[in-house]
Amino acid sequence: MKSKEQFKSSIYKKRDLYYAEQHRKCLQFMKIATPVAACFILAFTIFMTPLRNMLIPVDEATPENHLESSLPTDEVSSDVIDDFSIPVLSIEINTNTEDEGIYRLFRTTEKINSIISYIDDLIFFESQDMVDENDGTVITITVNYPDSEKNYYLRDDALFRNESGDWKTISKAQADRLKQLIESLESD
């Protein structure tokens, strides 16, 4: 039989082994639990974010400024880019070819507003195309502000606008309607 000291020392050794085993189990658990928790959070983010966006009303979900939005999008609404709070003096319409030439100069508030409000409602998309002003018939819409001007190029299929070096476009249907609007208005 063991002496009391041997017996006691054996108990304390077993205790140390027990704590070491507990510690090892804890580490093993953490090794498994950490990736599982990370996967759970990732899955939650992936599945819950679209669901959350679906549940939020559209006007709340749409960022006020698409350019500052963290969500990638090709679609850029016109009211972001155009600043029509500055009074427009006139709008000049011109064509690069004389055959199908359209020339208009609008100075009256009513006509300016009707064109501006139409442009204001346009939905622009990012475009990889560049506009060659001499490529086919291109109608140039020049919006004159007190200190500056802004040009839009209306081609057969779409309206392009150069904004800080980036070209943006609209759908053909919208371009056709804009062309009809311009043609329907008499020059001032």
């Binding site: 039989m1 063991k2 017996f7 054996s10 108990i11 304390y12 077993k14 205790r15 027990y18 704590y19």
Partner: peptide, 18 residues
């Protein structure tokens, strides 16, 4: 078995410690 009994007695006292 005295050896086993001793071992089990150690485990019993171990319960008091842990």
């Amino acid at each position: 078995n005295l050896t086993v009994a001793e071992d089990l007695a150690e485990d019993t006292f171990l319960e008091l410690l842990i």
